[in-house]
Design a protein around this nucleic acid. Structure first.
Length: 592
RNA sequence: GACCCCGUAGCUCAGCUGGAUAGAGCACUCGCCUUCUAAGCGAGAUGUCGCAGGUUCGACUCCUGCCGGGGUCGCCA
């Protein structure tokens, strides 16, 4: 149970009593009343702003109200002292027993500790990665993959019913372009043209994709179909065939990369399938029936006008009615659907599948696209759908401060695979979550492998490993003791008296709040900072034992205190493990 | 020109969806250390929270306007 939530409900109840007694007016809104840990621990264990928030609605001055509340709060269970401070804060001191009881909760609930019901089982759809099946994934995709995956796990932990989804852009111009590039590589594989021809076509912009990664795809095609496509000149015939071949091949690579990163999606939605099922037409018919589309001519883009710009009528969606700057085209002037039209259909499909709460994780270069999709979602869902787009900023890959040279295989970027092979999936995942996703991130190979306090992955993992190490020693020292979680839960927690031990217990008690806050804000990185803080406190305790032997966790002559401290160590380990699990990172048992 | 994101200690960044004297790590200064696993520990010092207004009991947090950095800007995905 969350201590702060408990206190909040007791505070609400106490205020309710005062209302019932006529000391306060009825109908007070208590939603803004908080019960939080004060920043300064010397202020107490829990602080509430009740008096300040309710001063105006009750027509009393905050100090006076605080005094009234304080007298009442003193009668609440486990409260040892209540004081009024500053402009009207009420500081509540609790019996240390509260924190010790909190530790028991951790041990009993295990890694499920902190699981919330905040989401109340609400369906939520998290779409992430959605990389085009046109080439290998790069570091930017890795960031999006990790952020999306961690966010999805976090939301699940907070009690949402999460669907993790990937949108495959397997229709439209880009996949046709990749098919064209594949044909060149295919002809090269067959010996009909040379590398020079391919590079020439690239320079003349006849093809857009020049990376070596298409060569094995071409070889696979030649292995399957021999020279069957060399003599087919009709684009309408060979493009679909080569396109589907590439898309299938690339999606296989994408899934292998995601597997290597430990990322798993529940649903892969195909743009092509939406088109073929008539869902793009369907979505547009729907918007038309709502009077939300029309044929019009857009203003030329501001700033530098493209050379070939000319006014042309096209089918537009009335995005401006839903907060966008301009109405957006859903059909190109040649009559085919725009990418946006497909996305409208895709989001309608999500709505039709029962999702009104959507999160999309995109690269920051798609920032200009957010408003129109949000507008479309509102139009498609009768205003009920809400879409939060988390934009991931650039990742700079460095080694000792020097930019890492680009992968030859891909051409112009560091691939996700390079990254994983260099430092391992767990390090990639953790480091990607040590920054807000809307802040740029430097990923330095040397720094993330460093074994020091500066490196959060190491520091947190080391805390976990140290905890496990203590247990290995304990098993030898106290062979008859029950060191299972259930056994530890029966320890005599009254033996935990050191202020720093209580400090760790307080931090553990904050875990459920942290989960809830991070889930609500869609900010998984908060857990990284929490874990770092907890690890720091734990290492601090350990170090105290170095200086003062009586403070070591294991006291050979005193099994009772040892077991109590082991319970604390285990509690820290469990919370770190559950945090790492949200991150998709394996907690390590030892660091040899 | 418009829109989005960012601007917090010398550096890299937190700041719990408005709360009390704005916090960590690094670097710096001083002291300690060979261990329940070594990849250190403790203490000290460091700020016009980009600037200017506004909202309120209270603003790093919300609003407006500037300044600076990045991103994006018809029929590309």
């Amino acid at each position: 149970m969350n201590i702060f939530a408990t206190l909040k409900s007791r505070i609400d109840a106490a205020i309710g009593e005062l209302v019932a007694e006529g000391a306060l007016p009825e109908g007070l809104d208590l939603s803004r009343v908080s019960a939080e840990p004060p920043r300064e621990t010397s202020h107490g264990d829990v602080a509430t702003n009740a008096a300040m928030v309710l001063a105006k609605p009750t027509g009393k001055n905050p100090k006076e109200l605080a005094t009234l509340f304080a007298a009442r709060f003193k009668k609440m269970p486990d409260v040892t002292d209540v004081s009024v401070a500053g402009p009207g804060f009420i500081n509540i001191k609790l019996d240390d027993r509260i924190w010790r009881d909190g530790l028991r909760d951790v041990l009993v609930e295990g890694t499920a500790y902190g699981d919330g019901q905040a989401g109340q089982g609400e369906k939520i759809n998290v779409e992430y990665v959605s990389a085009n099946p046109t080439g290998p994934m790069h570091v930017g995709h890795a960031r999006g993959a990790v952020v999306g995956d961690a966010l999805a796990r976090l939301l699940a932990k907070a009690g949402f019913a999460v669907t993790k989804e990937y949108y495959i852009n397997d229709a439209g111009g880009q996949v046709d372009n990749v098919a064209r590039a594949l044909r060149m590589r295919y002809l090269q594989t067959l010996g009909k043209i040379t590398e020079v021809d391919v590079q020439g076509a690239l320079e003349r912009k006849e093809i857009q994709y020049g990376g070596d990664y298409l060569i094995p795809v071409a070889e696979a095609l030649a292995a399957r179909d021999a020279d069957k496509w060399a003599s087919v000149e009709d684009e309408a015939v060979w493009i679909p065939a080569l396109r589907d071949f590439t898309v299938a091949y690339m999606m296989k690579l994408v899934k292998e990369d995601l597997l290597a990163l430990g990322v798993h999606h529940d649903v892969f939605s195909s743009e092509k399938a939406l088109v073929e099922a008539g869902k793009v037409d369907g979505a547009l018919v729907f918007l038309e029936s709502e009077g939300l589309t029309y044929t019009g001519v857009l203003e030329p883009p501001k700033g530098k006008t493209p050379d070939d710009w000319e006014p042309r009528p096209q089918l537009l969606f009335k995005a401006t009615e839903f907060g966008d700057e301009v109405d957006r085209p859903v059909k190109k002037s040649n009559g085919t659907w725009t990418y946006f039209a497909g996305d409208i259909a895709y989001h309608k499909d999500k709505v039709d599948r029962g999702f009104t709460n959507l999160v999309n994780v995109w690269g920051a270069d798609h920032g200009g696209y957010v408003k129109r999709v949000q507008a479309a979602l509102k139009a498609l869902s009768n205003g009920k759908g809400k879409l939060d787009v988390q934009l991931c900023q650039m990742v700079r890959v460095l080694n000792n401060g020097e930019p890492v040279k680009m992968s030859k295989r891909a051409g112009t970027f560091v691939t996700m695979r390079d990254l994983i092979e260099e430092v391992g999936k767990d390090v990639v995942r953790f480091i990607m979550l040590t920054r807000k996703n809307d802040a740029p991130l430097d990923f330095d190979y040397a720094k993330v492998m460093e074994k020091s306090r500066e490196n959060p992955v190491f520091y947190v993992q080391y805390a976990h490993a140290r905890g496990r190490s203590v247990f290995r020693h304990a098993a030898e020292m106290f062979p008859t003791a029950d060191l299972s979680d259930g056994g530890l839960a029966k320890a005599d927690f009254a033996r935990l008296v050191d202020p720093d031990e209580i400090g760790v217990l307080r931090t553990l008690a904050n875990w459920p709040r942290t989960i809830e806050g991070a889930a609500f804000a869609h900010e998984p990185h908060r857990l990284a900072f929490y874990m770092y803080e907890l690890a720091s406190q734990f290492h601090g305790l350990w170090n105290k034992g170095n200086d003062a032997a009586e403070l070591r966790f294991l006291q050979p002559a005193d099994q009772s205190v040892s077991v109590a401290r082991l319970a604390l160590v285990r509690g820290v380990g469990l919370v770190i493990a559950s945090g790492l699990t949200v991150f998709g990172v394996e907690p390590v048992e030892e660091m040899r």
